[in-house]
Computed example of a mutant assay.
Amino acid sequence: MTLIYGHRGAKGEAPENTLASFQKCLEHGVRRCELDLHLSRDGELMVIHDPTLKRTTGRHGKVVQHSAEELVGYDARQGGPGWVHPCPIPRLSELFEKCDFEHWQLEVKSASRVRAARTVLAIQALAERYGLLDKVTVTSSSREVLRALNRLTPQLSRGLVAEYAWLDPLKVAKHNGCELLALNWTLCTPERLEKAQKQGLHVSVWTVNEPALMRRLADFGVDSLITDFPGLAVATLTR
């Protein structure tokens, strides 16, 4: 049975990485999600994909230049389909409080050694506070982030995000003690999938939005797929 993860909530149906988007995902009965994290100026975990504010809020500057209090006042509706009501950038703590997901893929983008350390420690502290340590996997394509996870928060489940095949993703995942491989769907051959699963990895492929592709990857035997349209995925894979 292939599991379904909502990509940034339900990115194709609501403004990405907003509470509305994650609620939309849950409305479809999809209780797994993938999201992106950046630290605010005052060290809070904010749910936003880009390091800058421009694309989703129309504002200037980087996320890290703004306090959490400022960021939750910014409307992130530009990051997706039309939406009537304002959609603030959420704190991760708000989603932990309001959204009952059974598993969270928390992606951390590339970061300096210091920022990677601060981010993974903040994730662990928040997951502990909400009793979600066993429901979180921190994913990244950044060696710096994966090293920080190994060094500072070894009890956090971790995953490698692999977009390109220029380095063997299975070797990188094994080297970093990963339990999950978030694989760009174009890299998901039956051979690589089988090898990864034999290595004990949960293989999660992204971003899968076409029904025919959903069915094909499910037939391959992927463990989960990440989609902008969780409702469509449910309809496609439960027929």
Rank of each mutant, 00 (worst) to 15 (best):
T2E: 11
Y5E: 03
H7Q: 06
H7K: 06
G12Q: 05
E13S: 03
A14E: 10
A14C: 08
E16S: 13
E16T: 14
N17A: 04
N17Y: 01
T18N: 05
A20C: 03
S21M: 08
E27I: 02
H28P: 06
H28K: 00
G29N: 04
R31D: 12
R31F: 13
R32N: 11
C33P: 00
L39D: 12
S40F: 06
D42A: 09
M46T: 11
V47D: 14
P51Y: 08
L53R: 00
L53F: 04
R55W: 02
T57R: 04
R59C: 03
H60A: 10
K62T: 09
V63H: 09
V64W: 02
V64D: 07
H66F: 11
S67A: 13
E69I: 00
E70D: 12
V72K: 07
V72Q: 10
V72S: 09
V72C: 12
D75F: 02
A76S: 12
R77M: 00
G79S: 09
G80R: 09
P81F: 14
P81A: 08
P81S: 05
W83N: 03
V84M: 10
P86K: 01
P90R: 11
P90E: 07
R91Y: 11
E94S: 12
L95C: 08
L95Q: 11
E97S: 10
C99W: 07
H103P: 03
H103A: 05
Q105A: 09
Q105L: 13
L106R: 03
E107I: 13
E107M: 12
V108I: 15
K109I: 02
K109Y: 10
S112K: 14
S112T: 09
R113H: 10
R115W: 07
A116F: 06
V120W: 07
A122I: 09
A122S: 08
I123Q: 07
A127Q: 03
Y130A: 15
G131Y: 10
D134V: 00
K135V: 03
K135A: 09
V136T: 00
T137L: 02
V138Q: 01
S142M: 14
R143C: 01
V145L: 09
V145C: 06
A148F: 01
L149A: 08
R151V: 01
R151E: 03
L152P: 00
Q155Y: 01
G159D: 13
A162Y: 13
A162W: 12
E163K: 06
K171F: 15
K174E: 13
K174I: 00
G177T: 02
E179V: 07
L183I: 12
N184R: 15
L187S: 10
L187K: 15
L187T: 04
C188S: 15
P190R: 02
P190A: 08
E191S: 07
R192E: 11
E194K: 07
K198W: 06
Q199I: 10
G200V: 01
L201N: 02
V203H: 10
S204Y: 05
W206N: 05
W206S: 01
V208Y: 01
V208F: 14
L217H: 09
L217V: 05
A218N: 10
A218Q: 13
A218E: 10
D219I: 02
G221K: 13
L225N: 04
D228V: 05
L232T: 06
L232N: 03
T236L: 15
T238F: 13
